[in-house]
Design a protein around this nucleic acid. Structure first.
Lengths: 193, 193
DNA sequence: GTCTATATAGTGATAGAC
DNA sequence: GTCTATCACTATATAGAC
């Protein structure tokens, strides 16, 4: 219970994580040195190794936890209509991703800097998220609510379209997030009809 | 006219370019050393500097030339209907990008590794490509052929969706490129109707 | 828990021989 | 045009003092 005087692990730990996230997103994993992260945190490089065994684990944890949070946050009410479920998915996806631009960015850009083993873990999580959308589309296609030639292609097309919002959307811009969501929902709805 | 005996610049030059393209796409610009490129070409690192002043120029040329080729190849017959022009754009975009997976990949992943000046050049070219699609959508919206709330958003949404094909399409897979194009065209067509 | 110092290896680019 | 050799840095990670 008693905490060692001068221990800052519960403060420094998150700071290391935040600094790594910001710097990886800004400059890319390979271009960011442990010294740069340490400087951002306000410690010397050696001190970082109290919080991560190595740089690779730092990256893996950021991507892994992002995917876990995504899967944890996404809800699908299977008692509602396919159209309502799809609308909820579109709304959730855009909102969740718009809230975490750095996490989303490194999740796409830094996949190839994961070790093969770490990549497989993250990739499995990503696929299970895709599967949730495909399940909705398959259900709607089966009931006749949707007209979709190939649900796998439609899944990938919709996710690519929605995730693209992150490349240009900035809060405080010409359109509010609600307006953006409304317009994407309009396009997605028509595309699967 | 006469060529120096033993000169291989017309062979080695393209080989340097191809090796850089492949390695940048596979491992990322920052993670690829000039020595690695030289090994791939079959020369020593110092020899590369007969073909590029530095590593940055190597990257810039790849991205710049890719965008120039894209703009050069894209055709828009303004005498046809908005729907036909849009269909041609979708067909062209998917086909052109599917043919050049490495160029497309580094054009998205390595933008941030360009110097500010080089980035602006490439970014300007990219925007002018986007503008060509937006022109088509604006025209169709004006004639009533399309129903689009915001042509800028629709432009970005369609390009994100189409470019997403490159993340999963592999020639020889479940679907032919023609089948893929047909399905994307179906979704795009319905989305703007 | 953080520091300094260091081991070990890699980097981009250049000089000058051939 | 390509080679070898090298300069001046920077990298990740660790050891041991405090």
């Amino acid at each position: 219970m008693a905490r060692t005087t001068g221990s800052h692990s519960d403060i420094t730990g998150p700071k290391v994580r935040d600094a790594a996230l910001r710097l990886f997103a800004q400059n890319g994993y390979a271009a960011v040195s442990m010294r740069a992260i340490a400087t951002e945190v306000g410690v010397q490089a050696g001190a970082l190794y109290n919080y991560t065994p190595d740089k690779q684990t730092l990256l893996f944890n950021l991507l892994h936890d992002h995917m876990e949070e995504l899967l944890e946050a996404q809800r699908d009410d299977i008692t509602t209509s396919p159209l309502d479920r799809l609308r909820d998915f579109v709304d959730f996806h855009i909102r969740f991703h718009a809230d975490r631009p750095d996490e989303v960015f490194i999740s796409y850009m830094e996949l190839r800097n994961l070790t093969a083993e770490n990549f497989n873990v993250v990739e499995t999580l990503r696929r299970s998220y895709e599967d949730r959308l495909e399940t909705i589309l398959q259900h709607g296609a089966a009931t006749g609510d949707f007209v979709i030639a190939d649900t796998k292609i439609a899944t990938l097309a919709v996710i690519a379209m929605l995730t693209g919002v992150n490349t240009w959307f900035r809060s405080g811009g010409r359109l509010s997030l609600d307006q953006v969501i409304a317009q994407y929902w309009d396009m997605v709805r028509k595309a699967v009809l």
